[in-house]
Write a protein that binds this DNA or RNA. Structure first.
Lengths: 139, 139
DNA sequence: TGCCGCAATTAGACAGAGTCCAATTCTTAT
DNA sequence: ATAAGAATTGGACTCTGTCTAATTGCGGCA
């Protein structure tokens, strides 16, 4: 995942590759995420895309993030009871979550193995496996 | 964890054992959780304790659940982006979460082993390890 | 028992995240 | 250029959870 050369053109191609009509707003939202490669809340995305001049509404940010999640362009991260974070990193990985600062850090899933999982309930398939290590300052 | 004989007296003793002043409202809230041994949202707790006659306010339910979490009488379960669930089972375990129905099911942690975890960031301690298997209907 | 002081509870206002809707504006294909 | 469908929008709305200031209740003690 090269993040430095993440131009608007690269982002546009990526949207197309996921079958997403690349509109102005979607390009800006994707660019905000992929040029930084950081976990961001909807609010942070909204603030970022409107930094220079307002051009994207709250509704569109929410619509678009939902679309991105559905098309697996980004991943939802549910660790903070107050809000959802969006993660431009879609490779298998887990998270540290600092319960005091709210900071989220990636843990590569390649290094980790989880064994002894029970069978899924009948008729169900796994939609995702989330491992969250909640951490706080050693006091 | 015997759940059948979970009388208000048993619950009261349990509150005392955790250093919690057993008031009316706290007993009712704890009873709602421990007599059912189910994951419940604050809203569900509020509805349950006021089923017969209203006697507990929303503020008290939130205050009390927070207190219970701090004293480790119950556990918070953060899997649903919309709300927090409270889990009367404090033994080490993980969760299935049905993303379609919202249903939460326990997975005993005794059977599971997780290896390859990286070192915690310097100066941090683990406050909890949550493993969530998100499932949905096989279609 | 009666009183004091602190702990607990409360109603209701408030805050923040996220959804919804009907109206408008873009895009794209023709 | 135009029509049809897709995308965007402001703003009202819902829901979860927090806060505050006032009230109520309770335990300890004389």
């Amino acid at each position: 995942m090269k993040t430095a050369g993440m131009t608007r053109e690269t982002v546009t191609a990526r949207l197309r590759a996921h079958g997403i009509q690349p509109t102005h707003q979607r390009i800006e939202i994707a660019h905000a995420l992929f040029s930084r490669m950081e976990h961001m809340s909807a609010d942070q995305v909204l603030a970022l895309v409107n930094e220079r001049h307002a051009e994207t509404s709250k509704a569109t940010v929410y619509n678009t993030l939902k679309l991105f999640v559905e098309t697996r362009l980004v991943r939802e991260v549910i660790v903070d009871p107050a809000k959802v974070f969006y993660d431009p990193n879609t490779t298998p990985h887990h998270h540290f979550f600092d319960v005091e600062s709210g900071e989220i850090t990636d843990i590569d899933a390649a290094d980790i193995s989880i064994s002894g999982l029970p069978a899924l309930p009948a008729g169900k398939v796994a939609a995702g496996i989330d491992l969250i290590i909640r951490i706080r300052a050693n006091a």
